[in-house]
Nucleic acid binder design. Structure first.
Lengths: 344, 344
DNA sequence: AGGGATTTTGGGAGCGGTTCCAAAACAGCT
DNA sequence: AGCTGTTTTGGAACCGCTCCCAAAATCCCT
């Protein structure tokens, strides 16, 4: 039987100390306008002096929602998510919300678990970077009774606030960059086909190829899972592929996979970018370091988190009416893992 | 006025549907033994069929603690913390706790804020990687009325469960490695002198020098803040220092700083390890990649998180009596940023 | 000063559970 | 059947706060 973590002051003590009723204290606490200024100041003084802090749990029960928000992400160990998380938290912190971290590990079971958790704890809101397929996601989303902001994902038939980056454009930029360097055998290691973000990146890739009249065999696109390990497997595949047919340039759907590829290739003596060019996606903080210098597509992760939380806050506080939408523009960062196609 | 996030089922509905009293439902919910097996099964069936989930907030109020724990860390963007966080969360998840993330940003104000938050929300427990000086930390810790596990830090005069890595040994290993390569001008870029972890690392460094009879000027140790930027500044300093007196090997108190140093040096054409050897500390996942291949000291971050949360869980559930303590042993990982001292 | 409108305050009923206590049901005995 | 002793159950108080409603206080006029 867990010990009860005792508290000392309740609103009742404050009321007594201030010589008013609990209701009045509650009013100053919640900023209700109908309190005589003198009374308000007096109560505030007592609160201050006694270092009273209301129980968020009791408030949560009475108000029907806890001052917390959930952040549903794949895996916090991926810096991509970590930066977003930090952006979310900074705003949440200012606004007085705590952030509950929900690592789904890209696992649907676990994601379901957290969706339930959000209900049970009556969280005030939820920022979602889900992995569920659209089909499955919709009913779940509808069953959630709190404000939701979708981040880097969207569901066409479900209108929520949403923060996006133009993934089509980002990968178009990356691919065009490779094309302009003279490459025409370009491989794409994609993300999961279930996520709109990944699908859009693949789309941008294909569109660029088309625009520049480059033929594409189906084998040029492989599906991945955004892990470094998957990148390593791709690297292995590349090493073993027919050297006259394998891509001379590779566009990976995220930096982690690009790094995995580089790891394998570099340790087998493949020269980058001389033997093969590589572009990633995300611009993780460490990929810009001199020894790596990955060419990649930058997304404003931190700001995405900030924006998502700002949207959510407004929604929770019902300061807005219409759906909020923000689309960031990605930016190509050319560094040293891409170079001109060498004559064959 | 935020909208109330409506719920549907309460314990009362279940009681009615099952034809028993709320108390009985509550008993089956909490696993109280005094329920007739037939009744229990019957109630469970109703709960199952109606998909009832008790409100964690109401439970929290009644029990005096919420089924959540806090994780107080510096900055989730640092993979070091992210891996720990993931270890913590995985265990918490199994045990039915949610994890609230508290990024202090190494800022005392913000740390205080979160300490208060823990109280207000009546969290069940707290895992602390604080930045506060011992002096300041003790009263704060004492004022917290919930179980605490200290992670990678300790306060001598305050007995809590603790999970540590032997930092003295780790940096001893790193330093000895450099000495054995023939270096005798070795620089140390330390962490904040306020944290026991950093102080211990400095201690191991000094001890190794002493053991091998190497003289040390005070300038060999510089205080840092564990950021990549600080590493860059150190790199800058090294570039500008008198080339006959500057260190031929550098031991950084964490990988991030080591990477910052490498970033600057590598982009100025300094050859690593030919011109200077560098050792980091942490073995972040990306530092092992071929282009970087940082020699470093490995700590089992994920397992540290797992252990901390396991300790905390036991403590919350009062399954243990005595203080729990676990000290992991670090491991030197020799890669390619360290090499023999070249004749001068 | 008196009367209606408005502001300020206190009382009390929730919010959805847990838990203590006493009553009810059920044993096992003689 | 009648009497203890143990399970099993329901009732009610409570956890700490919010918020509705009505009473009290204050204000502005005539």
């Amino acid at each position: 039987m867990p010990m009860r973590n005792q508290r000392d002051l309740t609103i009742y003590e404050i009321a007594k100390a201030a010589g008013v009723s609990r209701s009045t204290v509650s009013r100053v606490l919640t900023g209700h306008p109908n309190v005589k200024p003198a009374t308000r100041m007096m109560v505030e003084k007592v609160i201050e002096e006694l270092h009273y802090r209301p129980s968020s749990v009791a408030q949560g029960l009475a108000r029907g929602q806890l001052n917390m928000i959930g952040l549903l992400i794949g895996d916090i160990r991926n810096t991509f998510y970590a930066e977003i998380a930090r952006g979310v938290e900074d705003i949440a912190h200012e606004a007085g919300y705590m952030v509950v971290i929900c690592d789904t590990d890209y696992d649907i079971k676990r994601e379901q678990f957290y969706f339930h958790g959000v209900q049970q704890f009556a969280l005030s809101g939820l920022i979602v970077m889900s992995v569920l397929d659209q089909q499955e996601l919709i009913p779940v989303l509808q069953s959630i009774r709190c404000p939701i902001v979708m981040l880097n994902r969207y569901v066409r038939s479900f209108d929520t606030d949403v923060v996006l980056v133009d993934n089509v454009e980002g990968s178009y930029l990356a691919t065009r960059h490779l094309i302009e360097l003279g490459h025409h055998r370009i491989g794409h290691l994609a993300g999961s086909a279930l996520s709109t973000a990944s699908r859009d990146r693949t789309l941008g890739f294909q569109r660029a190829l088309e625009d520049y009249g480059i033929e594409r065999e189906d084998s040029d696109i492989q599906e991945g899972d955004l892990t470094i390990e998957r990148g390593r497997r791709y690297g292995q595949w590349w090493l073993e592929a027919d050297s006259r047919r394998r891509p001379t340039a590779i566009f990976a759907a995220n930096d982690l996979m690009a790094l995995g590829i580089i790891d394998v290739l570099a340790s087998h003596g493949v020269k980058i970018p001389d033997d093969v060019s590589i572009v990633g996606y995300d611009d993780l903080p460490l990929t810009g370091l001199a020894p790596i210098s990955l060419t990649t597509v930058r997304q404003p992760h931190y700001d995405m988190g900030v924006t998502a939380m700002t949207f959510l806050k407004q929604r929770i506080e019902q300061k807005v009416e219409n759906v909020q939408r923000k689309i960031f523009r990605p930016e190509l960062v050319v560094r040293k893992t891409t170079g001109p196609q060498r004559n064959e």
